[in-house]
Design a protein around this nucleic acid. Structure first.
Length: 291
DNA sequence: TTGCAGGGGTCAA
DNA sequence: TTGACCCCTGCA
């Protein structure tokens, strides 16, 4: 990985293989990046607003510093992982290979765990455009403003910033029955009853058990949080698409979500989450996946 | 125009 | 294991 500063606020990252910015941001793992007319993506993560695009074999990040690239963005984009190795791992599986070809260059992001937790509580029984809208409103109302050129973006609010936001205020954002869950989760995080940093350091099984104590967090949401913000590559979130896909390709119609999770562990092993993300993206974009 | 099914699930009984 | 659930969209 080679970082070159193009000017004092634009960084170029060279040597990122198996990486596709569009697939990575559009595959459904994050809700805060929007494509701009010039084909870049603008967004905020870890309190920093930046614009990203790929050009001439490099990832270009503007409105940033070399230090932020090293301390935030390399890890956020998961650029230190060798995705070629993961590809090799699944080359014997015709379905995952096909899905990896289709979604080539998807990286699993390392997002902020609190943001991820609240976002995926909101995601339950909800669709991506609406999730994005709610998360964006939540950030605009309670998050810290971040300048990006002439625009102002808003960081996802911290637990502290949401401390005094009432359930009815959250309901006003059209979160519906999830409003109470959000308020409750914020309380648990602030009181230390749910220690997210500690959860990150736990083994997968224990970490999941801890997250499931939070109302509004079921197996699917817990696995999303663990995969997208706690580095648990074995987490295998089972949603409707993955469920359909697994039933069609590897199991039968009668399989329960729990059985699917278990089977996925057997088939895909420690990197099940990566296989999941490729299968999910392929299935969703193509209306399913055929045998 | 109105009605209804279903959506990147979870809770409670 | 099954219905209810906030809200919105797509489609008869």
């Amino acid at each position: 990985m080679n970082i070159v500063m193009k000017d004092n606020s634009t960084a170029l990252i060279y040597g990122a293989e198996h990486f596709n910015l569009t697939h990575t941001f559009m595959c459904g793992q994050c809700f805060r990046w929007s494509e701009t007319p010039d084909g870049s993506f603008a967004g905020v993560a870890y309190g920093k607003a930046v614009k990203m695009r790929t050009a001439d074999g490099a990832i270009e990040i503007s409105n940033t510093t070399e230090n932020d690239v090293k301390s935030i963005w390399i890890n956020y984009l998961d650029l230190n992982r060798n995705y070629g190795d993961i590809k090799k791992l699944y080359q014997g599986d015709p379905y995952v290979s096909r899905a990896m070809e289709f979604g080539s260059g998807i990286h699993i992001l390392n997002q902020d765990i609190f943001e991820c937790l609240i976002s995926f509580i909101i995601s339950a029984q909800n669709q991506i455009p609406r999730i994005k809208k709610i998360v964006s409103e939540l950030s605009r109302l309670y998050g810290t403003p971040c300048r990006l050129g002439d625009d102002v973006l808003y960081a996802f609010p911290t637990a502290k910033q949401l401390e005094n936001v009432s359930v009815s205020e959250l309901e006003a954002l059209k979160t519906g029955y999830r409003a109470a869950y959000i308020a409750e989760a914020v309380k648990m995080v602030l009181s230390g009853e749910a220690d997210l940093e500690k959860i990150k350091k736990m083994p997968y099984g224990d970490a999941k058990k801890e997250l499931l104590r939070i109302k509004g967090v079921g197996p699917k949401v817990a696995d999303c949080v663990l995969l997208f913000s706690a580095g648990k590559s074995e987490a295998f979130p089972v949603d409707v698409w993955v469920s359909r896909t697994m039933k069609t390709l590897y199991m039968d119609e009668s399989a329960t979500n729990r059985q699917i999770e278990q089977r996925a562990g057997e088939i895909f092993g420690k990197y099940a989450g990566f296989a999941q993300q490729y299968l999910f993206y392929y299935a969703r974009e193509n209306g399913g996946i055929k045998k």
